[in-house]
Amino acid sequence: MERQLDDNAQNVMDGRSVSRVILAEVRERAERLKAATAGTPHLAAVLIGDDPASATYVAMKEKTCRRVGMRSTVHRLPANTSQAEAEDLIRRLNADDDTDGILVQHPVPRHLDEQAILDCVSVQKDVDGLSTLTMGLLAAGRPGFRACTPLGIIELLDRYHVTFEGAEAVVVGRSNILGKPMALLLLERHATVTICHSRTRALADMTRRADILVAAVGRPELITGAMVKPGAVVIDAGYNKVPGRASDVGDVEFASAAAVAGLITPVPGGVGPMTIAMLMQNTCTAAEQRRSPAS
């Protein structure tokens, strides 16, 4: 019989608790920076269109900025904004000495080239880590901001003292936002990395090899306990709306996977809080790099 586990089980990684610790650390850093330079870290969020979920996410980020003693400004553009108008706003924010970090809320309206907009963000202010140049720095092993969700996963694993070196890691998903940077960050930590995706043959054979398994493919409960190596660390980075389900559903079938895994993240309360914590951390770092007397 499957062992039913709740979010208080010993093998469940608590992203909410870890994120609170990180946010407290960020607040201390922001206070020190303000004392030294009279400057408060400032995040500019760009929200294009009227997607309700995007508005909710931006509001959460605004609230978190206030919580850690940082400023947040939301630049709202209508859904019919042109490519030129969106890119012009980004360039003005790049030139604004009062702005430390720039976030373009995903997704943008379909008529816009989202990657081209992201590519307008200055590397020094790309706190979401999603421009082509910033991702290239990651691929080359050069310093730069890392995408918030994969960075948050690495941070969570570090705080749970997970060993990367020599581990076999499997990432299910190959998006630019999550799958690809996740694989590169794991590689940077000396894991042996395999990337799987929707066209991978014998997916279960691949996932059962993983010491660290990251599910980020956007398919509800694709990964079941039968696909998990006993004792593996399972990271569920999926958030899926399923009719009839009260809350978001991950890419991992939690009950069966938790009965097998050594460590596992829940949905919600696992990866999500870490993503916002990393955005705050990156923004504070950007402010330190730009505002500190030695910079």
Rank of each mutant, 00 (worst) to 15 (best):
V267H: 01
E25H: 12
L33N: 02
V242P: 00
A86Q: 06
S256A: 11
G269I: 15
A237Y: 10
M206W: 14
V21R: 11
A294N: 04
P78L: 10
A55N: 05
H161F: 08
E87T: 04
V127Y: 07
A140K: 12
K180P: 01
R71M: 11
T99I: 15
A232M: 07
G272F: 01
R174S: 08
L156M: 15
R291N: 09
G69L: 11
Q10Y: 13
A44F: 02
T200F: 09
A167S: 12
E87H: 03
A210C: 05
V242I: 02
L279Q: 01
A147W: 10
D113S: 06
R291H: 06
A191K: 02
G179F: 12
A95P: 00
I117Y: 11
G238Q: 07
A216R: 04
L185T: 02
A258Y: 08
G136H: 02
V233A: 00
V127T: 09
V234Q: 02
Q83M: 13
I102G: 07
D98R: 15
Y239S: 12
G49K: 01
P78A: 14
C284F: 07
P150V: 13
R201F: 13
L184M: 14
T64S: 11
A258T: 07
N80A: 13
I153R: 03
F164C: 00
